[in-house]
């Protein structure tokens, strides 16, 4: 079973506990306007160029699950001390068979985490996710209309999968990107806080928007058009969470 990977980052800091390697799977069903990782959107390999227009490399390499796992296990002496491997993207669950095979092969050897926005069919989510040791779940926009407008997708499957996740005994972490005027509104963060409260979730990580987000578009020959005021300071509104007894950590 093979899959397309656009980056393997050793020593990634924000993708779960301990020292980790993060594998970025290529392709995502969502088109978040603020996406900082445009390489992760298309499922096909594409050229990455330097500012001067010279080709740097091809983004997106096809890996056999077996080879990828072998490569990841080479760092086991380090990754096995409280860290592990994180599959991110793109949307890693959009290459479910490949991801599943990697997770199965790593089971018992290394701790695994899957970073997902949850926008995949229920049966895919339910089949693959139990094989991970930790899920990093993105909740972006609670309003269906706004979700469609800003991410290109309805959020119904996301909420369904989130609900399914909370019913499992699997450890998970909720994360929300703070996009000024888009996701950091009182309405949205309040709704997220309510949802977490209803599911008995006690913490959330908030990732403030960084003006660097558009940095990679030009290297892919694309134009970054976020459609919101990039210069505004995102507001974490942590009080909305603490009102529900939820600990909000701003990363």
């Amino acid at each position: 079973m093979s899959g397309t990977v656009f980056s393997i980052e050793e020593f990634s800091i924000y993708d779960g506990p301990g020292i980790r390697t993060t594998v970025f799977l290529k392709g995502c069903p969502m088109r978040c306007r603020w996406c900082h990782n445009p390489e992760g959107q298309s499922f096909s390999p594409e050229e990455v160029k330097t500012a001067g227009g010279a080709e740097m490399r091809i983004s997106g390499q096809v890996w056999e699950a077996e080879d990828l796992v072998k490569k990841l296990l080479k760092n086991k002496p380090i990754l096995s001390h409280g860290g592990g491997v994180t599959f991110s993207g793109g949307e890693p669950l959009s290459q479910p068979e490949f991801l599943l095979e990697c997770l199965k092969k790593l089971k018992g050897h290394l701790h695994t985490a899957v970073q997902t926005a949850g926008n995949v069919p229920a049966e895919v989510f339910d089949e693959v996710i139990p094989w991970a040791d930790l899920v990093l779940f993105d909740l972006k926009l609670m309003d269906p209309g706004k979700s469609l407008a800003w991410t290109g997708q309805d959020n119904a499957p996301i909420l369904r999968n989130f609900d399914a996740l909370t019913r499992r005994s699997l450890p998970f972490l909720v994360r929300t990107p703070l996009i000024p005027g888009v996701t950091d509104t009182e309405e949205n963060l309040g709704a997220i806080a309510g949802l977490l409260d209803r599911h008995g979730v006690s913490g959330i990580e908030l990732l403030p928007y960084n003006k660097m987000a558009g940095g990679k578009y030009a290297s892919l020959g694309r134009i970054y058009d976020p459609g919101f005021d990039e210069s505004a300071e995102p507001d974490p509104r942590t009080a909305l969470f603490s009102a529900h007894g939820i600990e909000a950590k701003v990363l």
């Binding site: 980052e9 990634s12 800091i13 924000y14 900082h36 990782n37 990455v48 330097t50 500012a51 740097m56 994360r175 990107p177 990732l207 403030p208 928007y209 960084n210 003006k211 660097m212 987000a213 558009g214 940095g215 990679k216 578009y217 030009a218 290297s219 990363l251």
Partner: peptide
């Protein structure tokens, strides 16, 4: 360089972002 919940290769960033 750290970008945003994620890190990137400096040399692949557009000049204005490098300058930033």
């Amino acid at each position: 360089v750290r970008v945003w919940g994620w890190s990137g290769y400096f040399v692949e960033l557009a000049p204005e972002y490098q300058d930033h």
